[in-house]
Design a protein around this nucleic acid. Structure first.
Lengths: 224, 224
DNA sequence: CGACTCTTTGAACATGTTCAACAAGCGTGG
DNA sequence: CCACGCTTGTTGAACATGTTCAAAGAGTCG
């Protein structure tokens, strides 16, 4: 729904410009599959942006590093998400597989794939970029103005929503990844989670890559 | 240049989808002018996104508020910048004039204006969105990982670059606006500026809405 | 089982915030 | 033109949140 709206609203802006200038027929497919193991690099910051990707299974992080090693993870990409679409010629962020991951790889210039099914993929790509902008701006509020506990609450609720999981949320990423996404340290992430558990709001099974949201209402209240 | 690249790179993705479906001829113009006084609201968060805007003169801030009044300013828009383009049906952020400001207002659905000059405006709009994404993601690093002094250094350098001003940068916005953009408090902004001045890196004329960048090299080094 | 990594916990510390007061512009009006 | 009052900006001191440093516990995989 949101997807449809986004595309519909944007279409007049995007299409008034230049007419599609289709090149010769090229080999396409629905995008070749490629598998990456955990922590494997998909592309580096500054690489030529020859492809974009859709997550089939697994999880991906896009990030940027400062010279002294500080890292900011711009976002996590879960199955169904598209990432790696760039405005310019090169990737502005690096991308790595968080866990073992399968991607559908699309050549950026593959017009045939983009036009298939009335441009379903193209619309999906545009929607992905719009969504990325929305999420980036929403994340700015989190990073600029929210407390550690609020950040964690936001993060857990967002993840639950994205994975459509009622209460049990799987965390593909480490505490360190979460910290670098939320602008915190590992210790702060761990402490905040522990506090939420002590308050009975969440549950942390022995498998630490899982969280059970016991009390979403309170969690939502915690998220400013 | 960057503009051309951005548009060129994106075109294949954007145009493969649906053909432009031009409606009846409509009154267009290059966008009607509208004047706003300082702190006047241009649109509120949640308003229907019927128009988008280009700054002719002055400055605009786009922002979002949390329930308890905390504010995050997503960005400042200076002459030449386009803002207010949305993926969905409504504005996700509010917009206010920072100083007395003149805007060119474009009806979102005005295909004629968008197509004029071979779609120059349409390309500009797309580039604007791409640029917004870039800046939003870059800002995430600042908010997530940089210290107060680094944030101020980044901010001053960025402003100098955007206004193409060699050394003297005008600050249309208050310390409070800067704080809410950089995820700090007014006091921290003021202190950081004072420190930079004491270190001889910048100069703060008695007119506090001005900054002279005395030592850009050091400033760049301070910005991580 | 043992070595490794990841996570948690504790204690000292630091950066930036909060609270408070003062200073400095600026605009208004006498 | 100056006085007044308001807004904006600066400075100081106490404080708090989250960080840093250190170590121990837990899970995993060879």
């Amino acid at each position: 729904m949101q997807f449809a709206l986004a595309t519909a609203g944007l279409a007049p802006l995007l299409n008034a410009g230049s007419a599609p200038h289709l090149g010769p027929r090229q080999e396409a497919g629905v995008g070749s599959r490629r598998r990456f193991e955990a922590d494997e690099e998909i592309y580096a910051e500054g690489d030529r942006a020859a492809h974009f990707y859709k997550v089939v299974s697994g999880a991906v992080r896009t990030y940027k590093l400062l010279d002294d090693g500080r890292r900011q993870i711009a976002g996590f990409h879960l199955p169904g998400d598209i990432f790696g679409v760039e405005a310019g010629e090169e990737h502005r962020f690096g991308a790595e597989a968080v866990t073992e991951t399968t991607l559908a790889v699309h050549r950026r210039s593959d017009r045939e794939a983009l036009a298939r099914d009335g441009g379903a993929l193209a619309r999906e790509v545009v929607a992905a970029m719009m969504g990325a902008l929305d999420r980036a701006q929403e994340h700015m509020i989190l990073l600029g103005r929210k407390s550690a506990k609020e950040r964690i609450a936001s993060f857990l609720l967002g993840l639950a929503e994205r994975t459509r999981s009622a209460t049990a949320v799987e965390l593909p990423m480490s505490r360190g990844d979460i910290a670098d996404h939320l602008g915190l340290t590992v210790e702060s992430v761990s402490r905040s989670l522990t506090q939420l558990e002590r308050a009975g709001i969440i549950e942390l099974p022995t498998n630490r890559r899982m969280v059970v949201l016991r009390d979403k209402a309170t969690l939502r209240r915690l998220d400013a």
